[in-house]
Structures are given as C-alpha cells and as structure tokens.
C-alpha cells in the first residue's frame, strides 16, 4: 500500500518539484510556489464545485435559519423543508464533500513530497534516495540549496514571518467564506467565531514547527484559494470592495464614517 502510494503520488511530485527547481535556477522556494499553483489549478475541477456549493449554502443561510426556526420542534419536517430548499436552489448538500475527499490525497502527497525533497539530515536524505537514485539528472541536484532570503527552507522560519502570513491568509480566506448576515443561532455564531480564530492560529502554530518550505506551500495555497473565491464572488455580482467590506467591516465602516464626517465639515 505504502509502495503504491509512493509510486502514484509521491514519486511524480518529487520529480516535478526537482525539475522545477532545476528549471527555476535552483530556487526551491520558487519551485514550491509554482508547483503549488499548478497543483491547485489541476485540482480546480474538484475544488470549485465544493467552494461554489459552500458559498451558495451560506447565501441561503437566512432561509435555512428561518426553516430551522419554524420547524424547530419537528425535525422530520425541518429536514424535508431543507431538502426542498436545496432542490429548488440546485444545491447538493453533500456535493462539496466528495471532491474535497478526492483531492485530499493529492494535497497530502504534495505536502509529503515537499517534506522529503527538503531533506537536510542524513536520514531524510536516505529516505529521498530511494525516490531519485535511478535518475542521474535529479541525483546531481541533491542536496538542494535550501537558502531563500533569510530562510533555510528545511528549517522553521526564525523570524516567524511565514507563520504570521499563514495565520493572516488562513483567517482572510475563512472570513471570505463567512456569510455576511450574522447567524441567528447563537451556538452557530459562536462556533463560527471560534473557528475563525482557532483554525488559523492552529495552522500558524504548526508552521512554526515545520520547515519554512512547507509554510511557503501553505501561504501560496491560501492565496490561490483567496483568488479563486474572489473570482467566484465577482461572478456572483460582488465587487472587490464588497469582499473587503465583508472581511473588514469595522475598518470600512470606520473609513466610511470618517469620510462622512469630513464631508459634513
């Protein structure tokens, strides 16, 4: 099973990252960034329906909450009405799940292959050797130059810049996905709030431990997700300003108030 996983997923990704490294002037940070974008674009047919479905469900939140409130004591009827609503709106509530599950191995393989290629200890290099030993061109690249700006890509960022970027981009992306209308269910609202803070912090904490090359992967993949979401939003008739207003309501309302005050004077 492990061998099959390595052959189908890990080996091609290791080869791809090493070829990119060679092609991009031995800059592995750039290779990770480019490969991340390529992988995200290739998995777009899988992620896009999920992202669209999630977004549509959020837009329907007021209607969903109204049904939940109306049939709070009749679970059967509640489910029935919800399914009816989903059908009317053309949403498959489970539709987003399968594509996400299918792309999980790809994301995992990508993560594992970066970790392997970034080998800078004898044991990790020994592990990498079983993947590249048969290819003279790739073997000649080992060990990779892991220097990029102030970073050693095989080790954690000593200045915590990347973990901060991971936290910010994760939070931004999650905030974009949050419905602009507040949840009427206080439990759901509280869960949303907690998720918005704890999940980005958790990813930030993990990237403090991991090699900075992996943190670059997380930052780039978050940015790609933000761009995709932005495109979906714009297709739905929202402007960039609307999106930013939804993410930073306080700042934009403050700015609006200040502008208003200036006009009054």
């Amino acid at each position: 099973m492990g061998q099959l996983w390595n052959t189908i997923f890990i080996q091609p990704m290791i080869y791809a990252s090493l070829w990119l490294y060679q092609f991009l002037g031995h800059n592995f940070a750039l290779a990770i960034a480019v490969l991340t974008v390529v992988v995200r674009l290739l998995t777009l047919p899988l992620t896009l329906p999920a992202q669209k479905s999630a977004k549509k469900q959020q837009e329907l939140q007021p209607k969903i909450q109204a049904i939940q409130k109306k049939y709070a004591k009749d679970r059967e009827r509640q489910t029935e009405e919800l399914m009816k609503l989903y059908k009317e709106e053309g949403i498959n509530p489970m539709g987003g799940c399968l594509p996400l599950l299918i792309q999980l191995p790809i994301i995992m393989a990508f993560y594992q292959s970066i970790a392997k290629v970034l080998a800078d200890t004898p044991l990790t290099l020994f592990s990498l050797s079983s993947f590249v030993a048969g290819n003279a061109a790739l073997t000649s690249l080992v060990p990779l130059s892991s220097k990029f700006l102030w970073l050693n890509l095989a080790r954690p960022d000593p200045w915590y810049v990347l973990p901060i970027l991971v936290v910010f981009t994760s939070w931004f992306q999650q905030k974009m996905m949050t419905p602009s209308t507040p949840a009427t269910d206080p439990q759901a609202a509280s869960m949303n709030q907690t998720m918005q803070i704890t999940m980005p912090l958790m990813f930030g904490f993990l990237t403090m431990q991991w090699p900075s090359g992996l943190a670059i992967y997380f930052v780039v993949t978050n940015i790609v997700s933000i761009i995709i979401q932005l495109v979906i939003d714009m297709q739905g008739g929202r402007s960039i300003r609307d999106v930013f207003q939804a993410v930073f309501p306080q700042m934009t309302s403050d700015a609006g108030t200040a502008k208003g005050r200036r006009k009054k004077r």
């Binding site: 999920a50 999630a54 987003g96 999650q174 999940m199 993949t221 997700s225």
Partner: peptide, 22 residues
C-alpha cells in the same frame, strides 16, 4: 484549505487531515 472548515463535515475532514499529517 479553509473551505473544508465551512462544510458540514468539516470536523471529520480536519481530523482526517490532521491524522494524515501526523
């Protein structure tokens, strides 16, 4: 990655991802 978390099955997926990472 955050789009996972918005979904109904988000918790399950997060656990799965964490398990795979680990």
């Amino acid at each position: 990655m955050i789009e996972f978390l918005r979904h109904k099955w988000s918790l399950l997926l997060v656990i799965l991802v964490a398990g795979l990472f680990m």
